[in-house]
Every structure is written in structure tokens, then in C-alpha cells.
Design a protein around this nucleic acid. Structure first.
Length: 644
RNA sequence: GGCGGUGUAGCUCAGGUGGUAGAGCAUACGGCUCAUAUCCGUAGCGUCCGGGGUUCGAAACCCUGCACCGCCA
């Protein structure tokens, strides 16, 4: 039996899941579901990366142990994946005991082989930040955060002899051109490798950073970043002795975004080689999702939160959009408008309507029972459609393993379009008027039902819920993870006489604002609108507009008065992530009173500079005479909670 | 400074080995009535960023310039 092992990166728990995480994970899920359909025995791994400076600092800022902090954010990731239809086999955390053991095992092994050495270097160190700075990172020779001059300091650490593996890696990538794909990223790695590699620093002194895995050969040091994180891919399946490791590591595939190409394309292969572990099979690298002109960035408030959109527009619609819109490897842009356009055009109009009209006619002409294939296909009429069926299945089979998701989907949609065209050409409603045409009508409707069934099978990896819904209504028992491409995409598998039912629309159209404005408001409605405007003094908005405002519960962690300003106070607010916000509330609220308070924050306000200080959000308050009162939640609430 | 990416219709973008420029959306007109105001058809719109080169033939390959975007030091 074929085996298949796919991983996502382990996500660093310093921020909430965003669309990039969602895309990577959905890609892995799609491939994994596809492999199940091909009859492979699969294993799908995801997880969280929980050690390091940033976590230790964030936890300290909240006054809780790092593990507690990591537990919370890791929980966010564990909660979101089921909501996006992700069906993984294991969720690994770098704080898991098995992982820690495996990391120490690898370190000891590489150390014993003489590939890790101890070395001392000098650098510029900021005591406030507890870290070294490069000269170019400094502002006027001072730490950008603390505005103090760093001191020269000597530190010793352990280094991995990565440089030694450069030639081997170049050779491997040249002999295995498919190893890193798409090709552009293989070229990028090869061009990195044209320059001499430096050795990799793999430790931090425990006195400076104790939130990490202790080096097995020197407990005064902890493991730093990559020797901890990357090893998850083998520790999760029981390296070195586990059965799963033996079965699945030889067929390992990683999915990553291009920002971590270097660690996965260079460090990781060198580490594997040094530890005597075989190289992974494929590294699959995708691009960035962009909103508007800039790269997605949480500091600009342009993060699209998948959890917010998936339930509004439907989880399958969201998955479809991500897989159809991005060419794997290239960047793509995300916007609500593009999402809605895809939903209306591809899902509601093409697929949803095809399904709806097919079943409505089956109801009308055959009391909702599957008719027989009474006649052989009519070459002239049915030939094109049957050709599209074959093509869609072939593209599906070829493109998904080659990461051509958009091609697989467009082939399926060509089939859907051909079926819609077929209905118009054949005009079953005309056939139905003439009793002599009954066999032909039966054949035509059965053909359409078969096409719908095959579409339902082929969209399964992308849209598992819709696939099951369609198959259920078509009276097909086998669905979901039981589907096998060989058996279930074959023509004529429906059973004559099986009842079908139409059900609700698969994908209701999403009304767009442009369309709404075209439709004149009803007379009574218009009057009501006018009256409401008069009463409140504000024009009415619809719910979509309101939903664009990202309101969240924020916990004020720090507050200080802005010098030379009587109204402004600078706040550090936790809204699930840390935000600097400048608020005009100093006249009524002293900084000391503000710390610890929970307030309501507009989280997606465009950043602004007030008195030269950047503000990334706004605190809501109500004016009451001369007084100003903050809007607060009824009871203590988790920071970051979305207000709706 | 170094490296890389991108530039194709009004918009968003596809364009496996070089062979008459494509899709969706948007716009205009027409057709159908099974269907979620959906579907089908027709039409228009292109300096494939500019300039050179290779070739019988270039959006694609090579060189060069410009613009935008990343990454690294």
C-alpha cells in the first residue's frame, strides 16, 4: 500500500492564526484527502512552536509562566483547524516530552559525531532587550527600543558545522530536481548555496533565555530555534525507533510558505544529513496572500482572520476560494470582493445552480427517482460532456500531486459549464412534452445526475462538506473518507430508482452592495428608512458594513502620559496581540487607573500618528457632559474577544 | 549594496515542450424557462512594460533599460 506523509510548519505561538496559516494547512489537508482517495495510507501533521525569546517575553509581560501562555495560543490553533475542515492525524507541540527527548537525542548524536563545536564571539548587547544587535539595526548607535547605547559583550555558544554539508546538498538538489518545488524555489536555494554557508548558532545561554530545551551535553545552554523546531517533523512520528517513523518518514512532504524556505531548504537537510536521517522527499513552497498593496501585516490591521470569514461565507466556499485563486508558489491577493465574486459566479451560479436544476427536473419528470440510462449516449449531443468528464478526472489525478490546484479546479468547472450548456442544448423540458422521447429524457437526466455525482466526488478534497451533502442528496451512501477515485468516479454508478432530493441551495448568492443599490427600495421601506434617519440623525447602514468594523476587547497593560499633551495617553493593549494605541482620555483618566482595565478597541482602524506617536487602534468611550466614560465589558472577558 | 520576483483586456489574473493572445468579473445586445434574477449565445476592448538579439516563428528563450514588490547583508 502506498504511504503518504504531509506536514505543515509548526506555527509560532506569538500571534493568532491568520490567512497564511490557514492556506498552508488547507493545502496540506487537500493533498491529504486526495491521497486517501487514491488509496494511500496517510499521516497529516501540524502543531505549534512554543520556545524562544518572544514567548518568554510575552509571558513575562502578562505575568504568567511561558507554558501557560503557550497553552493558550496553541489552543487557538487547535480550535481553529476543525472549523476550517482540517482533518489532521497529530498535533505536535514543541513542549511535548517526546519532542524534547527527540531533540536531545539528535543533538547528542550530532555532537558525538563532532559536528557541533563551542565558540566565542563579540557583539553589541542591549541589556534592556537581553539580546545582541547588529550595527545596522541601531538608531544613532542606540537600541531602537530603549534608546540606550548597547555594550560590547562577549558570549560563547554552540555551533553546528552546517558549512560542511553545502556540497552534498547542492549535489542532492541537482540530482533530485523535484525535491524543492515549484522550480523557482529550488533555484532560489541553489543560488543561496553559491555563496559559502556559515555555521549555524544553535544555542543560547540559559542565564539569558531559559525557555527552551537544555542541550544534553551542556545544561548551561538551551537549544535555539531551528534545532528545536525542525525536528518536530520526525519527533512527531516517533523518531528514532517508532513504527510510524519507519513507515512514513521515507515519503515525507513538507508544505511551507516562502518566508521559511532557507531553514527548510538548507538547515534542515544539513541537520538530517548530520544526524544520519534520510532526506525528506519534497518541500512544497507557496507564496504570500496580500491584501491591497502591502504584505499582510498585523501591525497595519490588515490581517484577515479566517475564523471571521469562514462562518460568514461558509467554510467550503473559503477553502474553494483559497485553492482556486492562488497559483501554488505565486503570491495572490485576498479581498472580500474577490471572495464574494467567486462564490456568486463559480459556486452559486455554476455549481449550485447546476445541482439545483438537475434535481428539480428529476423531481418533476421522474418523481425524484433516478432514471435508467435507457439509450446509449448520443455522440453529437453527449460527446462533449463525456469528454469533459474524462478530462476533469485526468486533470484531478495529475494536477493535485503536482500542486496544480487551480488547474484541477478549473477542469472540474469546465465540466460544470459543459453540463449547464448541455441542458440548454438538449432542453429536457421540450423532451418532456413528447411521450415518445421518454427514453431519451431518461438518458439525459441520468447523464446529468452522473455528472453531478462525479463532480461531487472530485470536489471532495477541496470541499468535503459540500461533497457529502451532494452525494447524500443523490442517494449515494459512500462519501467522505470512504471515497476512492478508481471506483467512485466511474460512469453509471448510480442505481436506477434510487430517490434523490433537492434540498436547500448549496450556495446562496451573496448580495453585493452594487446590486442592492440598483434595486429600488420598496415604498414602505423607504419611508421607514427616512423616519429612522430622522430619529437617530444617522443614515442607516447594513450589517455587512458594520461587520467591517473589527471591535475587540482589549486589556490595557501599560499606560503613560504623552509628554507635552494634556489629552493624550499612550497605551499598550492586549487584543489577542499587543497594540500601541494613543487615546485622548488623559483629562479624565490617569495612567495608573487605566492599567489592568478592559476596554473596547477598534482593531482595524488605519494607523495614525498623534504627536509623533503611532497609534494602531482606538479606544471607545462616551462623552457625558464634561466627563468621558470608557465602554467596558459587563464582566472580565478574554482579551481579543470579537464584539458582534 | 547583493539576490530574487512581478509587469498580459476596464478589473483580478491564467498562459507545462516557442506555433493565429485566454478565463472570470464588468459592459452592450439577443435567446431559453428546468433552475438560486440563475443558464446559454453574440459583441467590443490588447504596443503581452520599453529597447535590442536568437528563430521560419517569441508573451514565453538571451541581453539591456524602466517601474513596482519582496528577501538578505
Amino acid at each position: 500500500m502506498n504511504r503518504f506523509y504531509i506536514t505543515t510548519p509548526i506555527y509560532y505561538v506569538n500571534a493568532e492564526p491568520h490567512i497564511g496559516h490557514a492556506y498552508t494547512t488547507i493545502v496540506a489537508d487537500v493533498i491529504n484527502r486526495f491521497q486517501k482517495m487514491m488509496g494511500s495510507k496517510t499521516f497529516f501533521l501540524t502543531g505549534t512552536d512554543e520556545h524562544g525569546d518572544k514567548i518568554a517575553q510575552a509571558a513575562r509581560a502578562e505575568g504568567i509562566p511561558p507554558k501557560a501562555y503557550a497553552d493558550r495560543i496553541s489552543g487557538l490553533f487547535q480550535n481553529i483547524w476543525p472549523k476550517l475542515g482540517i482533518d489532521y492525524d497529530k498535533f505536535i507541540r514543541t513542549t511535548d516530552p517526546e519532542h524534547i527527548q527527540a531533540v536531545q537525542y539528535v543533538l547528542q548524536k550530532v555532537f558525538d559525531a563532532g559536528e557541533i563545536y563551542f565558540s566565542t564571539y563579540k557583539g553589541l548587547y542591549c541589556v534592556g532587550c537581553e539580546r545582541f544587535y547588529m550595527e545596522r539595526e541601531l538608531v544613532d548607535g542606540k537600541c531602537p527600543d530603549h534608546d540606550t547605547a548597547p555594550v560590547e559583550r562577549e558570549e560563547s555558544n554552540y555551533f553546528f558545522r552546517m558549512s560542511k554539508y553545502q556540497d552534498w546538498l547542492i549535489d542532492h538538489l541537482e540530482k533530485n530536481p523535484e525535491c524543492i518545488r515549484p522550480e523557482r524555489y529550488r533555484n532560489e536555494v541553489l543560488s543561496f548555496l553559491k555563496e559559502p554557508l556559515e555555521d549555524l548558532c544553535i544555542s543560547r545561554p540559559a542565564e539569558r533565555l531559559d525557555w527552551g530545551i537544555p542541550l544534553p551535553f551542556d545544561s548551561k545552554y538551551v537549544t535555539y530555534v531551528w534545532f528545536d523546531a525542525l525536528i518536530n517533523y520526525i519527533s512527531a512520528i516517533g523518531y528514532p525507533e517508532g513504527e510510524l517513523y519507519g513507515q512514513f518518514w521515507p515519503v515525507a512532504q513538507h508544505v511551507i510558505a516562502k518566508d521559511i524556505l532557507k531553514p527548510h531548504g538548507i538547515y534542515w537537510p544539513a541537520m538530517l544529513k548530520a544526524a544520519g536521517v534520510p532526506m525528506y522527499r519534497n518541500l512544497n513552497v507557496h507564496g504570500y496572500w496580500k491584501t491591497g498593496e502591502a504584505k499582510m501585516s498585523k501591525s497595519h490591521g490588515t490581517v484577515v482572520r479566517p475564523l471571521d470569514l469562514a462562518p460568514v461565507y461558509g467554510l467550503d466556499a473559503f477553502r474553494y476560494f483559497l485553492m482556486r485563486e492562488m497559483v501554488f508558489g505565486l503570491d495572490a491577493s485576498f479581498s472580500k470582493e474577490a471572495l464574494v465574486a467567486r462564490i456568486n459566479a463559480d459556486l452559486a451560479n455554476d455549481l449550485g445552480n447546476l445541482f439545483s436544476r438537475t434535481l428539480a427536473m428529476t423531481d418533476r419528470y421522474f418523481e425524484g427517482k433516478t432514471p435508467p440510462l435507457a439509450l446509449p449516449p448520443d455522440e453529437a449531443m453527449d460527446g462533449e460532456l463525456l469528454g469533459k468528464v474524462d478530462n476533469a478526472i485526468r486533470q484531478f489525478r495529475e494536477q493535485i500531486p503536482a500542486l496544480g490546484f487551480h488547474r484541477a479546479l478549473s477542469a472540474i468547472w469546465e465540466l460544470i459549464a459543459a453540463a449547464n450548456r448541455y441542458i440548454d442544448y438538449v432542453a429536457p423540458w421540450s423532451l418532456a412534452k413528447n411521450p415518445d422521447s421518454l427514453p431519451r429524457l431518461q438518458t439525459v437526466m441520468r447523464t446529468l445526475l452522473e455528472v453531478n455525482r462525479i463532480v461531487a466526488v472530485l470536489i471532495y478534497p477541496f470541499m468535503p462538506e459540500t461533497s457529502s451533502k451532494m452525494l447524500e442528496r443523490l442517494g449515494v451512501e459512500k462519501r467522505g473518507t470512504e471515497l476512492r477515485l478508481d471506483q467512485d468516479a466511474s460512469w453509471g454508478a448510480l442505481v436506477e430508482g434510487t430517490p434523490v432530493f433537492k434540498g436547500e441551495s448549496l450556495f446562496p448568492r451573496v448580495e453585493t452592495e452594487g446590486k442592492k443599490q440598483e434595486k429600488p427600495a420598496q415604498g414602505a421601506n423607504k419611508a421607514a428608512v427616512a423616519q429612522r434617519v430622522e430619529q437617530t440623525g444617522s443614515p442607516l447602514i447594513d450589517i455587512d458594513l458594520f461587520r467591517q468594523v473589527d471591535l475587540r476587547i482589549g486589556q490595557i497593560e501599560q499606560a503613560e502620559k504623552v509628554p507635552k499633551s494634556e489629552k493624550l495617553v499612550k497605551l499598550l493593549v492586549d487584543i489577542g496581540e499587543k497594540r500601541q494605541i494613543v487615546a485622548g482620555i488623559a483629562k479624565t483618566h490617569s495612567p495608573a487607573d487605566l492599567v489592568g482595565k478592559q476596554v473596547v478597541i477598534v482593531a482595524n482602524l488605519k494607523p495614525a500618528k498623534l504627536m509623533g506617536i503611532e497609534s494602531h487602534g482606538m479606544v471607545l468611550a462616551v462623552r457625558d457632559g464634561n466627563d468621558l466614560k470608557l465602554i467596558v465589558p459587563e464582566a472580565e472577558t478574554a482579551p481579543g474577544g470579537r464584539i458582534s
